[in-house]
Design a protein around this nucleic acid. Structure first.
Length: 324
DNA sequence: CCATGTTTAAGTGCAA
DNA sequence: TTGCACTTAAACATGG
């Protein structure tokens, strides 16, 4: 096997789908949401391959953002300069790559319109992000320093900060560390063959260590994530696009008090309990080896719903599950 | 005008 | 073989 020389592999396509790349980018940001341009930047910063043919892959990436329910759009606050919305991961998408492959998911995450009892409505997502942000911000304020890389608190709705170990499955640290995790190749047991051209890193630790070392197609390090994706919304998240007027496609609809993702639910969203349990569970503290018991599992309806149907969200309540 | 989003469609490859 | 996930291309809409 040829040694992965810098230029030998660095410009090769990384073994990640656009979805996983995007998820990584989003997950790497303190707010767990990024504008499109930052997602581009994240990817280009770390994967030299994507510094070329930008038109092509960026178009694909945008397609993925719109097309996949696992990504939700969160409007900018009115006072936030810039174009476009922020993109975040649907709180219930859990670990779409639990099979270990970042090239191909086992199932596509889809938000379904469901009867009742939607475990997680898109609105929750925004609410979550809001809360998370606040948590982090308060943590920040408390510590008086730069935000520690602690997505943990994010999903820990209890508000009690986790020991700081938790990382969302999409956290780049996890993604990369996971591949790496099993010495004997265990990790790969369930894994899609990663192109031989992409030897696994030899020494990634869960965090802190440089992603760069031995990782030909990746530049940067976990540590630089913060600097790469500076906190763009420094304060009060409560205002997230509150007006939300552009959100309503339908005139008569009631707008939630909190920012809601645009696509998934034009529909009347029943008032949410402050913080439904289901969501946190999913993203919560599950160690990188995720529990299959995630809400993803829910009732997979033998999807009579075509993608397009799903997209045309005119449902009442939404239900997120991994459909098949 | 350009960046951002949405959609449709076709082609590829993997896995059941 | 078939279905699904993914990639790519492209048309079109919208908003700064």
């Amino acid at each position: 096997m040829p040694r992965p020389g810098r230029n030998t592999y660095s410009d090769q396509k990384p073994p990640y789908s656009y979805i996983s790349l995007t998820a990584m980018a989003i997950q790497s940001s303190p707010e767990k949401m990024l504008p499109l341009s930052e997602i581009y930047k994240f990817i280009m910063d770390r994967f030299p391959y994507y510094r070329e043919n930008t038109q092509r892959w960026q178009n694909s990436l945008r397609h993925n953002l719109s097309f996949n329910d696992c990504f939700i759009k969160i409007p900018r606050r009115p006072d936030q300069p810039g174009k476009g919305s922020f993109w975040a991961l649907h709180p219930s998408c859990g670990d779409m790559f639990e099979n270990g492959s970042f090239l191909r998911r086992r199932k596509r995450f889809k938000v379904l319109k469901s009867d009742h009892l939607a475990p997680s409505k898109p609105a929750d997502a925004a609410q979550y992000l809001q809360q998370q942000a606040k948590l982090r911000l308060s943590a920040l304020a408390a510590s008086g320093t730069h935000l520690p890389q602690m997505p943990a608190a994010a999903y820990n709705l209890g508000g009690v900060a986790q020991p700081s170990g938790f990382k969302h499955p999409f956290a780049i640290e996890n993604i990369i560390a996971r591949e790496y995790k099993m010495p004997g190749g265990l990790a790969f047991s369930a894994m899609q063959p990663v192109p031989a051209a992409y030897p696994l890193p030899n020494q990634l630790t869960t965090m802190g260590s440089s992603l760069g070392t031995g990782w030909p197609h990746v530049y940067g390090s976990a540590g630089m994530i913060d600097s790469a994706t500076p906190i763009s919304m420094a304060s009060d998240y409560s205002a997230y696009g509150v007006p939300l007027k552009p959100l309503c496609h339908a005139a008569g609809q009631t707008l939630p008090a909190i920012p809601v993702p645009i696509k998934p639910t034009p529909a009347a969203v029943p008032a949410l309990p402050a913080l439904p349990a289901p969501i946190p569970t999913l993203l919560s503290n599950s160690p990188p080896s995720l529990s299959p018991t995630s809400s993803q599992t829910a009732t997979s309806q033998s999807s009579p719903a075509t993608p397009s149907e799903t997209l045309t969200s005119r449902a009442s309540a939404l239900h997120s599950v991994a459909v098949h």
